[in-house]
Design a protein around this nucleic acid. Structure first.
Lengths: 351, 351
DNA sequence: TTGCGGTGAACAAACGATTGCTCTATGTTA
DNA sequence: TAACATAGAGCAATCGTTTGTTCACCGCAA
């Protein structure tokens, strides 16, 4: 059973507040050397650590951050979490992890619990466009940051990548390889990344003078299963695409499975490009060409942003947007020595 | 800013304790219907939620569980975490996630923070044999459960699989396919799974009358990079193995990479069997034959066990050991229709 | 002797809830 | 009419810290 201030005070024959001041190294404390030594010995001996709950109540800070994501088994979010924890732990924070499976109701429930727990900050990576949960979050005075996806335009603190540019890089790469019928396994239009990556896809096609074929855009969502279904749809078309841009790497993984089952060779029969560059992308055979974003850094930056809000008390809606890079692997280019194209990894301050 | 009991009491012209009793539906409360209605309206209107920190202090329970693992980006731990959260959330608990990267010092630091925070329970999946952190945990009166790995024999609450049997299934499978020179990419002898899976490997060889060749056992640790290095070692032998049992699936993934770089065909030139059956195993090409363990269930059972300890207040060192199953895929059997061998998935109460 | 300044601590009020107990009306029974 | 039960609340302690303020004492100077 952990020891309390009161018990220590009794053993040291002093008042609890004196023990507290010694423990916290209060500079305003004037104390006899002998007393101090006695108390310090006791603190060490008992390995006293102040009760975090009581401390949290008094100081109004819990030293807890919360991360809300769809699903930690998705490698993207696992890497993101590591980034967050790596940013938070050195500052004394620990991190609550909440999975929503993309269900708004669960997200809401989690956020309410978190608010009741008085977590010091929230990092949210499961938002929708027009998300009531985010609006609610704004009203609370809890520091928060949205990651990867944003909600209503530009009004929240945010860290992510330039999705339009990333999607354009991906699509232009396929166009450059001579593809004309390029499919898109698209994210939901209720999610910012879904919308913006579509936009980039369309922009690249239109820039190249390729007329958009509505059949070639199939909504897949962001996970493997949806990718597989959408790919099936594309391959069942009368004139199936020769290449596809998948809204995420996991979606691309689903597409790989379908191509394999149908006996299609990647990239000869079907070229595929993904988005995010999760570790799995490089391990696929062939390696998945994808748009690289600094996932771990998303996390550490997000952590720093929320910590900054906590420490300064100012909740400015700063946005950090990273420039994506295309990473070419075997899924688009048969003889690919892996190479990195696209803009350098510089961070740009504005969207 | 969230509302407090005191404010509500002022607005309802009653004492805070009365509001509290209404909010908590205290059956011992006798109250006029009018007053109750008035208070309830206020509670709804303000969406009052009691301050969890204050509540935690008074009630001595935080409704927080902590999970300590090596690394969430390892799919095994991601699946485990989901199991835990799925077991904990419905009971009102949220979950802190702590990554240690297998560094004892970090594990210790995390556990101390967690104790200071008064988390209600700890689920630890990063222990070593003879782990001082676990001994320390035993002295604290915090409910805890070890998962997958245990520490000193049998004295802690534990949920995991029968590692010896699992390793035997894997090795026997390779023997049954005619392999004689079977390598083992082994876990560290400081970790229970490392020790027990070696034991199973040796037992299977010895049962089959195959003399152990010390060169064929190379310590790889549990992650991809170590698997690659160990596989390099094995393949550089004068008489390299024709098959290998990897202590985890991630280790096997490392081996896949090496085999591929060296132009070896799996399973024709090198058969591989892993352990855990993470989702990635089935996606590899060829599919990875592996020992299936119910990872998600490890988590949900562990959560239930720790919740049970919390609720009953009794800390019995109950052990739940699952029987592993062999899942045969293409990495060991060229024409494999995937099949499930080995014992049925029944749960056995004892080790 | 009175007053003063510095030392070395104790005092006490929070932080926001929970809960056993007390208290005051009012209505009922003997 | 006196005693008493009951309804309907309020009171106050407590959880373990933190921190602004007060206090007692001692030595020293006026």
């Amino acid at each position: 059973m952990p020891v309390t201030l009161k018990e220590l005070a009794a053993r040291a024959q002093v008042h609890p507040s004196t023990v507290s001041r010694v423990a916290n190294n209060d500079p305003s404390l004037r104390i006899a050397q002998a007393t101090r030594t006695r108390i310090e010995a006791l603190l060490r001996e008992t390995e006293y650590r102040p009760n975090g709950v009581a401390r949290g109540l008094k100081l109004r800070q819990t030293l807890v951050l919360a991360v809300v994501i769809p699903d930690i088994t998705n490698p993207f979010f696992a890497a993101l979490f590591r980034g967050i924890e790596d940013g938070a732990t050195p500052r004394g924070y620990q991190v609550l992890l909440c999975n929503t499976d993309g269900i708004p109701e669960r997200q809401r429930a989690h956020l309410q619990s978190l608010a009741a727990r008085r977590v010091d900050g929230v990092i949210l990576a499961s938002t929708f466009l027009k998300d009531p949960a985010v609006r609610w979050l704004r009203h609370q005075r809890t520091p928060y940051v949205l990651v990867n996806r944003f909600s209503d335009e530009g009004v929240d603190p945010f860290v992510g990548s330039d999705d339009v540019t990333g999607a354009m890089l991906a699509t232009q790469h396929l166009i450059g390889l001579g593809h004309v019928r390029i499919g898109h396994l698209a994210g939901q239009p209720t999610v910012s990344t879904g919308v913006l990556r579509r936009k980039g896809y369309h922009a690249a096609l239109s820039d190249a003078g390729i007329a958009a074929d509505l059949d070639l855009l199939v909504e897949s969502g962001f996970v493997e299963e949806g990718g597989a279904q959408a790919m099936e749809r594309l391959l069942s078309l009368d004139r199936p695409p020769t290449a596809a841009f998948a809204v995420t790497d996991m979606t691309a993984v689903g597409a790989y499975g379908v191509a394999r089952r149908r006996g299609l060779r990647i990239p000869e029969d079907l070229a595929i490009v993904g988005y995010n560059d999760i570790p799995l992308a490089a391990r696929l055979i062939p390696g998945l060409t994808t748009v690289h974003v600094p996932i771990h850094e998303f996390g550490s930056v997000a952590a720093r942003m929320v910590l900054e809000q906590i420490e300064t008390g100012v909740l400015t809606p700063r946005r950090v947007v990273f420039a994506p890079q295309l990473v070419v692997r075997g899924s688009s280019l048969a003889s690919a020595d892996e190479q990195v194209l696209g803009r350098a990894g510089a961070r740009s301050p504005a969207e």
